[in-house]
Nucleic acid binder design. Structure first.
Length: 443
RNA sequence: CGGGGCAUAGCGCAGCCUGGUAGCGCAUCUGGUUUGGGACCAGAGGGUCGCAAGUUCGAAUCUUGCUGCCCCGACCA
């Protein structure tokens, strides 16, 4: 993409309302624009990252056997009356009346709707296990939206729903999502620690919140330091096999949020030098809630002996839009964002320091073409602005690599290649640059 | 939902107390000089001062109501 033809509205100054670093940087880097309290437009650069996160989530959901579909944002109140949650959900639910005076709502979650779909089609235990998910915008009318995208009212969530014959198999489904989550966050360069959690209004008796440690996190968490170095299951993990050992390993050490922490137990089970008390951002939550929805909504299947039983369910959420904020909180410096390669909006920022100069133009254009051909996403700064402004912009938007084509280096046939994360710079020939970036960014 | 604050050009702000028809920096546009870490000079454009009533000869400024937004706390992917 040529910067001269892109839409990247960078801000030099920080809008006053942005209190935390991720919000500030997202506004400055032209990723989002607030339209109303807790409601944002996604500008091109922000949308690109959002899509990359979605793709990782989709790949890991598929690996774990979940099937993607798409449910609407607007739901009928009737469905929620069946589960009893229409009145129970309270003011957080945005209620809407259509032209026929029908009561509708903007979905804050989809347990009812997915259960309705399930009960309409699935009749036999032979069709189980089943795990259906979608990635869709949710709306929760928070009393106090804040922190930019981290606590918006409208947010993008991946929510998966598992259906199984009994509790034992439902826990196996739970474990598959648990392991998928470990992998999902790891692929984005985040260490998310699963912590025992309350189930809240969704209900149930088994639940974990996946927490990323960050100073600006909203809740206080207590956990064992060894979680930070724990090995994440690899691509070869067998989702058809027994995942209990992995889940046990990842739940064996103490980890709890402030809501349910037992400080005596924390201190008894964690040696003093291993105790972490920190702030954390919740980026996902898993629930097993048995027949809480399948009973009232009549989601039943026939068993092998012909009797009908309500299915055991679980639900599994990932805050996709919130993850952007969490990623920036975890990866930035005083100059801007530092994107992990897996979610970076572009891989490389190619800076032509002197557009109009035959040498910088020809070398830049040539490298731009070759990088794109190699499948590397390049933001090519071909604009006629000053060097300092170009560097500042590149640091701000945080692409993993910057390549600078300027008269000074090209006099000797060399480009400057900068690693955004380490700040290391090296002078390389165009060919060596291409080889280095191809090696670092593909395969 | 309790407490506090703000609303004046795209962004950041001054002006308000003590009413006289709006200003600064950045950004934008034009010309020129510059050009390896957010340049300089000259000129230009851009505002029904959040909305609505009221007081007044006259309201950004005083009064009342409304709306929007932000911050602190209790709640949530």
């Amino acid at each position: 993409m040529r910067l001269s033809r892109y839409f990247l509205p960078i801000l030099k100054e920080t809008p006053k309302e942005a209190e935390i670093v991720s919000h500030r940087l997202m506004l400055r880097a032209g990723m989002i624009r607030q339209q109303s309290a807790g409601i944002y437009s996604w500008l091109p650069l922000g949308l690109k990252v959002l899509r990359k996160i979605e793709r990782i989530v989709e790949e890991e959901q598929a690996r774990a056997g979940a099937i993607q579909l798409l449910m609407p944002t607007i739901q009928s109140a009737d469905l929620w009356r069946e589960s009893g949650r229409y009145d129970a959900y309270g003011k957080e639910m945005l209620r809407i009346t259509d032209r026929h005076e029908r009561e509708m709502l903007y979905g804050p979650t989809n347990e009812e709707m997915i259960t309705e779909i399930f009960r309409s089609y699935v009749r036999s235990y032979k069709d189980l296990p089943l795990n259906l998910y979608h990635i869709q915008w949710k709306f929760r009318d928070e009393v106090r939206p804040r922190f930019g995208i981290m606590r918006g009212r409208e947010f993008l969530m991946k929510d998966a729903y598992s259906f199984d014959l009994d509790k034992e198999r439902a826990v196996e489904a739970y474990n598959r999502m648990f392991v998928a989550y470990l992998r999902t966050y790891k692929r984005m360069g985040l260490t998310a620690i699963p912590m025992r959690a309350e189930t809240g209004p969704i209900g149930g008796d088994l639940s974990h919140e996946f927490i990323v440690l960050a100073d600006t996190g909203e809740s206080e968490v207590y956990c064992h330091a060894d979680y930070l170095g724990k090995e994440t299951p690899g691509e070869d993990v067998d989702f058809n096999g027994d995942l209990t050992p992995i889940v046990s390993d990842w739940t064996s050490l103490y980890a709890a949020t402030e809501d349910i922490v037992d400080k005596a137990e924390f201190e008894a089970s964690v040696p003093e030098d291993k105790r972490i008390v920190a702030r954390g951002i919740e980026v996902g939550q898993t629930f097993y809630f048995g027949t809480k929805y399948s009973e009232p909504l009549g989601a039943k299947v026939a068993t092998s002996d012909g009797t009908e039983v309500a299915v055991h369910m679980g639900s599994y959420g990932v805050g996709v839009s919130r993850l952007l904020g969490a990623l920036i909180e975890a990866n930035h410096d005083e100059n801007g964002i530092i994107w992990p390669k897996s979610v970076a909006p572009f891989h490389v920022g190619l800076v032509n320091l002197k557009p109009g100069d035959d040498l910088t133009d020809s070398v830049s254009e040539d490298l731009y073409g070759k990088l794109e051909s190699a499948g590397i996403e390049v933001l090519y700064d071909d604009t006629d602005t000053r060097a300092g402004a170009k560097f500042a912009t590149m640091d701000l938007i945080g692409l993993p690599f910057q390549v600078v084509a300027g008269p000074r280096g090209l006099k000797d046939g060399l480009l400057e290649v900068k690693d955004r994360a380490t700040g290391e710079k090296e002078m390389l020939s165009p060919e060596a640059t291409l080889n280095k970036l191809t090696a670092a960014l593909t395969g």
